[in-house]
């Protein structure tokens, strides 16, 4: 009885904020677009889902999103791992200020920070201007893939660093010392001791970066080129330009299924390795 009453708010929370919205989106994806307020009729039509799964236009967009998210995750990992390791190995009194420096950008609006990048990357902006001067010719940054990746890595890096730090700071330094006593050079200690023990942090960081990155809309829209038709932008244009709510919902449902499969696979591989 007591357990039920404790868990009741949690279940209500999940029902109202997770299950109900998902059920609504799933129901709309089975409807049909129509003139009206709201602009669809409920029904049981698989047309929208079938189009999303068979039309190459959407497949290209999903694959592009997965690729951009994958590369961004990799960049975040390569940049974030040394940062997290450095913070974890830093003297005690330095750790909190360093962590704060990672988290501080979160305290200002995300949209404002991305807009600030437009100023930096635009023709004649600080970065593009400096690069043009060095290259001796005009360098275009804004609305290119470089700007897209820069924005993605910049935005999602903290999501990688924080779980990595959490797992690296819990490592017992005695394990590394023992490996050193047994004659392991630093690189071998890292590969055989630190890296394997931090894998849960790596997995958590990658999932935390990859999943929101796949559906990202704002960064490709504001920084990416017109060719960067990621699934977030395609979904926007179904909803706004075509006013086709069922199609937009079908895309959202498909994206969700895709994103449930990825962490499930990661977890599956992880638990297989543990056995």
């Amino acid at each position: 009885m007591n357990r039920v009453s404790v868990l009741l708010p949690v279940w209500c929370w999940l029902l109202v904020l997770l299950v109900a919205p998902l059920a609504i989106v799933a129901a709309i994806s089975l409807g049909e677009a129509a003139d009206g307020v709201p602009p669809f009729t409920l029904g049981f039509s698989l047309d929208s889902l079938r189009t999303v799964w068979t039309d190459p236009f959407y497949r290209v967009s999903f694959l592009l999103s997965l690729r951009v998210a994958g590369i961004s995750t990799l960049c975040c990992l390569l940049l974030g791992y040394p940062a997290a390791l450095a913070i974890a190995r830093a003297p005690e009194r330095w750790r909190d200020p360093l962590l704060l420096a990672i988290m501080l950008p979160f305290w200002t609006g995300f949209l404002m920070r991305v807009n600030a990048w437009i100023g930096i990357l635009a023709d004649g902006g600080w970065l593009a201007g400096a690069l043009s001067w060095l290259a001796g010719g005009p360098v275009r940054l804004l609305y290119t893939d470089a700007a897209l990746y820069l924005g993605m890595v910049y935005t999602y890096l903290p999501f990688m660093v924080l779980p990595l730090y959490a797992s690296l700071s819990r490592l017992d330094p005695a394990l590394g010392e023992a490996a050193a006593d047994l004659g392991a050079p630093p690189w071998l200690r890292f590969v055989r001791v630190t890296l394997p023990l931090s894998m849960p942090g790596v997995a958590a960081g990658c999932v935390l970066v990859f999943i929101p990155a796949v559906g990202e809309y704002v960064i490709p829209e504001l920084l990416g080129g017109p060719g960067a038709q990621l699934v977030g932008r395609v979904l926007w244009s179904e909803f706004f330009a075509n006013r086709d709510w069922p199609m937009a919902s079908a895309l959202a449902v498909t994206l969700l299924v895709l994103l449930l499969v990825v962490p499930a696979t990661v977890q599956g591989i992880w638990s297989l390795r543990r056995r």
């Binding site: 236009f57 017109p226 060719g227 244009s237 330009a241 075509n242």
Partner: peptide, 18 residues
């Protein structure tokens, strides 16, 4: 009609992509 409009939006996305 909506089907023609969808074709237009799609074409526009291809045009923007280049």
């Amino acid at each position: 009609p909506q089907s023609a409009e969808r074709a237009r939006t799609r074409m526009w996305a291809r045009f923007k992509a280049g």
